[in-house]
Design a protein around this nucleic acid. Structure first.
Lengths: 228, 228
DNA sequence: TATGTTTACTGCACGGCGTATAGTTTGAAT
DNA sequence: ATTCAAACTATACGCCGTGCAGTAAACATA
């Protein structure tokens, strides 16, 4: 019965990831060491090489997992609001991004920082990001009818974007112009900026109410989309 | 004559930093190793301990230096525009932030990422950040007469901000309300967001023209400040 | 100029890390 | 019961930061 083998294997693999996540949560990405994981599992460090080819491989897998977890949170928060409430959905998304990031700062820097020098993201990790971006495009698409007029939509062209992005956007939102995709990225950047600054401690010396500032920014964002 | 001693000492210290910067530029912050620096200088790794108490100490000094360099670039770009051209100054600041960051990605992640786990920024590093923030408040202050009306200035209070920030703002811009300081932080976040995403490679899979997106965002920013 | 002191540096050692190679146990399959 | 692949250990190499002891040169003082 190779089932038992496979099950044990999956369990060990999951345990490695779980311990790695715990180590990361306490000491940051650098604290993820094969030896520490093995120590905690009563194994030799080399045993891990049966599950992950290299340390970076393990970290890479972790990134995918954590990113997927974040996206699930974001989508859940979005879906807790009715589809017609475009502004509420955007704000819920933004608010969840911040709370998740502050609750999992090491996860945030794992995803949005670059733990590996010459890091090339794996397919699954890219998938989570694409899923998040597609969702953002969806949020912007809902707002686009009212937002279009207020945006100085430069001279964006479909060729400005990755073919893969273009394909999915055109499939899901046939009438959406390229400027809306650019707007989605800008919305992403706008949410990301303050959260990144806060997670990395750059707002600590400036404001005692980073949440207030963030909410003001998001209020300004939705109003700039015509969703006041 | 302790002058000679002091000079040699300063030169060695500078050489250490220079090599550390070079190592960082090629291999990221993790590539800054005392042994590699010493190797390149024809010294023992321990010799560096006469100049920096610890590796983190050296990195910390590097952060201050790099941050100061960035701020100098930003201020120079701003000052290349006449003081009356509020919009031009903001755009120049933003554009320089992006070009510097893309030219010095490792420097960017050194400043805005967190190379040390439980990192506590030193006085000089904080100074550079405060200088940048003060400059941003200045840029927003110039725009405030026209921007005030367009901003839904929540319920910001002076007590929301760090006393040090409040002090300098009130000294330099006596008539500026707390909402303008919050707006400055939001402007910072807005510039930071897309640049951080681009530097860390998160826009690579999305757009081929990140600069276009960024410029559109900045155009939207200045127009939202009433500086169209 | 001779002596003592401070400074800059080396040598060695320790424990940590990732990881390559080789060897050993173990449990399923025949 | 034998075969065989998978899981794991042992050992080793070369990195790393860093503490401690020692040395040689530069300086200050007499």
């Amino acid at each position: 019965m190779p089932n038992r083998r496979a099950r044990l294997r999956a369990e060990t693999s999951a345990e490695i990831k779980a311990i790695a996540l715990k180590l990361m949560a306490t000491g940051g990405p650098d604290a993820i060491s094969l030896r520490a994981i093995a120590r905690e599992m009563g194994m030799t460090a080399n045993a891990i090489y049966g599950y992950y080819a290299t340390r970076d491989d393990l970290v890479t897998t972790l990134i995918s997992d954590v990113y997927t977890d974040l996206v699930r949170h974001l989508e859940a928060a979005r879906d807790a609001r009715p589809a017609v409430d475009a502004a509420g959905r955007i704000v819920a998304w933004a608010e969840t991004l911040r709370t998740w990031s502050l609750a999992n700062p090491e996860g945030f820097r794992l995803i949005y920082g670059d733990p590996v020098p010459g890091y090339q993201p794996p397919e699954e990790g890219v998938a989570a990001e694409r899923r998040a971006c597609a969702a953002l495009v969806g949020l912007v698409a809902d707002a686009w009818p009212r937002a279009a007029g207020r945006q100085s939509h430069g001279d964006h062209d479909w060729s400005d974007f990755d073919p893969h992005v273009v394909e999915t956007v055109r499939a899901e939102h046939p009438d959406l112009p390229p400027a809306a995709v650019a707007l989605s990225l800008r919305v992403w950047g706008r949410m990301h900026g303050l959260v990144a600054l806060e997670v990395y401690g750059h707002l600590r010396g400036q404001t005692r109410e980073p949440g207030k500032v963030y909410r003001a920014e998001m209020a300004d964002l939705v109003s700039s989309l015509g969703l006041a």
